[in-house]
């Protein structure tokens, strides 16, 4: 190999690396929809990457999930439960916490795929990791409120503010108090409890 072709090759590699770097950075800044919808292999490399550093849970990016689930309740971000939990929820829609939430097979498959790919053990971020750590590997909780992490985080919230509060009624109604829950934001600063206001620890 002559010196000139070697130089050319190095230059080409530098240019290629630059292009890849640039395209990746635009992906990180964009809304994230396209970034998400790749194969699962890619998510497995995401640990410690862009999402590893965010404290918010990724917002819901799937239209079917959003429409179907929020018809009756707050659409919980997929990153709040592991894949095994979502699978058990989706395989039992006929008895969905005492309700019938049957879907046509196609919609059911679409939503299941989405939840699988975006579950706590698929898209890591601080919240998802904390929730995962609080669940034993042989457990597949069906409710986010049953996880030790959730219980720990809400242990100081008195019953009268939630179950005894007509505007809240249940810990399952995230958005009643977490004013930005629909954006995937669950930090304390955004908490406004109806009838009580801000939450001061």
């Amino acid at each position: 190999m002559t010196l000139k072709t070697k130089q050319k090759r190095v230059l080409g590699m530098v240019l290629f690396a630059g292009c890849v770097g640039l395209s990746l950075s635009t992906l990180a800044w964009s809304d994230g929809d396209a970034w998400y919808e790749h194969d699962r292999e890619e998510h497995e490399h995401a640990e410690g990457g862009f999402y590893g550093n965010t404290s918010d849970v990724p917002m819901i990016t799937n239209a079917a999930y959003k429409t179907e689930c929020s018809a009756c309740h707050f659409a919980y971000p997929a990153g709040l439960l592991p894949e095994r939990s979502w699978l058990s929820v989706m395989n039992n829609l006929e008895n969905h916490f005492g309700e019938n939430a049957e879907l046509d097979p196609e919609t059911q498959a679409t939503i299941t795929r989405y939840l699988q790919g975006h579950a706590a053990d698929r898209i890591p971020n601080r919240f998802s990791r904390s929730i995962l750590r609080s669940i034993r590997p042989d457990q597949a909780p069906l409710r986010i409120t049953e996880t030790s992490y959730f219980e720990h985080k809400h242990r100081e919230v008195p019953d009268r503010m939630v179950r005894g509060n007509d505007k809240v009624r249940s810990f399952s109604n995230c958005l009643s108090c977490h004013s930005m829950a629909d954006k995937g934001v669950f930090d304390e600063d955004s908490v406004r409890i109806p009838g009580f206001g801000r939450w001061e620890d």
Binding site: E94, E99, N100, E102, L103
Partner: peptide
């Protein structure tokens, strides 16, 4: 159809 199926059964 979806809601009839679910709600009638429930």
């Amino acid at each position: 159809e979806k809601w009839f199926r679910r709600n009638c059964k429930w």
